[in-house]
Design a binder for these strands. Sequence first.
DNA 1: GTTTCTGCAAAGGTTTTGCAACAAA
DNA 2: TTTGTTGCAAAACCTTTGCAGAAAC
Lengths: 153, 153
Amino acid sequence: MKPEVREKVEAFLKEKGLRVTRPREMIIETIFESEDHFSAEELQDKVRAVDAGASRATVYRTLSILVESGLLREIDLGLGVTYYDPNFIDHPNHNHLICVDCHRVVEFEDAHMAVLEDCITRRLGFSTASTSIRIEANCEELKQKGVCRKGHR
Amino acid sequence: MKPEVREKVEAFLKEKGLRVTRPREMIIETIFESEDHFSAEELQDKVRAVDAGASRATVYRTLSILVESGLLREIDLGLGVTYYDPNFIDHPNHNHLICVDCHRVVEFEDAHMAVLEDCITRRLGFSTASTSIRIEANCEELKQKGVCRKGHR
DNA sequence: GTTTCTGCAAAGGTTTTGCAACAAA
DNA sequence: TTTGTTGCAAAACCTTTGCAGAAAC
């Protein structure tokens, strides 16, 4: 876990008066030790691998707390399960491109996009306090060579 | 149902050799007689209101067929239920702005956005065959006046 | 010692599916 | 008549919740 992330997480726990329990600690550690997106189930499997684990209920409850605090963000990859993104602490303005072929997710930041997004949003009568852009696309590699790095499909 | 929509839907049914049954007819008619987004449950309620209705299973099965055919698109409004958008036949390139405050959904098309989206997508190694952009935003009206037209929250 | 948290198991809600009866072509 | 479709009910899924025991502070 990066120092600045650890700092924010610890500050958050202290501020909210949340108790530092073993399951909670393990879950938070596991989430922020990687930049990968994950589902609740994937998280639980990871936690179980390094420790006694935590119950499904505790996993969901901890996720819920972190999302509410803004440290973690829910993202929809169109797979019918909620995924979570731990990278918003480091990159508050990133967006996602989701490959509909291989389900690969690529994070990107683009200043032009941010400006344009802001224009459009205002024009429609909204403010940009909390926007997120998701692009669904097709894998060029798959289209041309019939395969893609992730190997799905 | 607009003529061009009816044309495409009928062509699709014929091409796939799908039978024109009463429930199927009613469901398709109901979907495309309005431009509203809807959930499976909302659709079933609407169908039930004008006719004997159709079972939940048939509603879901018909939705599934239409989505597969490209006549209807699933959209995620972040409400935990799948919503459907019947407007892609008329406006294949529109995008959605979703108000996280009132859940209002605004459709928009923007040429600059389309170009930029294409640039970013290519730069990342993907093709733009099937992209969609979703902007989450806050309602300006709600922020300033404490209410918004939809009345939620 | 309080207060919060955990785990379990049950419940909740949406979507899918197996199967026998039924209807379209 | 043949083949595809329907409806029902059950199952499958993911996620949430009530509650009693356990753990943090």
